Computed example of a mutant assay.
Amino acid sequence: MTLLEVDGISVTFDGFRAINSLSLSMGEPELRAIIGPNGAGKTTFMDIVTGKTRPDSGRVVWGEDNRDLIGMSESAIARAGIGRKFQKPTVFEDQTVRENLAMALKARRDPFRVLFRRADNAGRIAELADEISLADHLMRKAGELSHGQKQWLEIGMLLAQEPRLLLVDEPAAGMTPAERGHTADLLKRLAKTRAVIVVEHDMEFVRRLDCKVTVLHEGRVLAEGSLDHVTKNRDVIDVYLGR
């Protein structure tokens, strides 16, 4: 099913058109990589989807009820099921991995379950830590983790909010080759049960994701398809790969 549909959005900043009648759709579950040169509109696209930036025109349609996200607050969009991970990890470095995950867990509103929250949260924390390969590091302070492990912890903190769509910005940056491989495998596993959009410049990392690729240029879709397909596109070579 279609989970997210961006329909004809445009936005201009001080005379510069950052997004130019951009349209794309995202299924659930699905893994998608978005690539493109600097200034192509990748970050602005994520800003619009998450409510940080309001476009001049167009719609961002979400979920089964075809809700338009335009005009909704960032917090309301997050509660609707959209999580975003920025390039630089933002974890609580003086707190343990367990404490970071506990703080991120989605608050339960059912009064009957309040009595069981502590035990229930402990089980969920263990599941999250296992999913992000930090089960052996629960009692370590986040500040002691490697860069890649901090990235995984932040992904785990987003997963605690139970998002249906996860937006991930350049996850491979600054990682060791082993960490990049593990991160690609993690994102592929996550995309089996939810929608995941990855913005990335590392072509080897994108190749490892083995997913549909959308190429942005000047705020619109230039090409779309497998990585092999888009990298053979003459326009993509001219404006991006040839640089």
Rank of each mutant, 00 (worst) to 15 (best):
S10C: 05
G15E: 03
F16I: 13
F16Y: 14
R17D: 06
I19C: 04
I19W: 05
S21Y: 05
L22R: 03
S23M: 05
L24P: 14
S25C: 11
S25Y: 05
S25E: 14
M26G: 12
E28L: 14
P29C: 03
E30C: 10
E30M: 09
L31C: 07
L31K: 12
A33D: 06
A33H: 08
G36M: 01
N38P: 11
A40M: 03
A40E: 02
G41H: 09
K42Y: 09
F45V: 10
D47H: 14
D47C: 02
V49W: 02
V49E: 10
K52P: 03
K52E: 10
T53M: 03
T53Q: 10
R54D: 13
P55S: 00
P55T: 00
P55W: 00
P55H: 00
S57G: 06
G58E: 05
V60Y: 04
V60K: 05
W62H: 07
W62L: 01
G63I: 00
N66H: 14
N66C: 06
N66F: 07
N66R: 15
R67V: 08
D68M: 02
D68C: 05
L69V: 03
I70D: 05
G71V: 08
M72H: 12
S73L: 06
E74P: 14
E74N: 11
A76T: 09
A76W: 02
R79I: 00
R79C: 01
I82K: 11
I82S: 09
R84M: 01
F92T: 00
F92M: 03
Q95A: 11
T96E: 05
V97S: 05
V97C: 05
R98M: 02
E99Q: 12
N100F: 02
A102E: 12
M103K: 10
D110A: 09
P111G: 03
P111M: 02
P111A: 02
F112D: 01
R113K: 11
R113L: 12
V114H: 11
L115F: 15
R117V: 02
R118E: 15
D120E: 07
D120H: 08
N121W: 13
N121H: 15
A122K: 10
G123Q: 07
I125E: 08
A126H: 09
A126D: 08
E127D: 15
E127N: 11
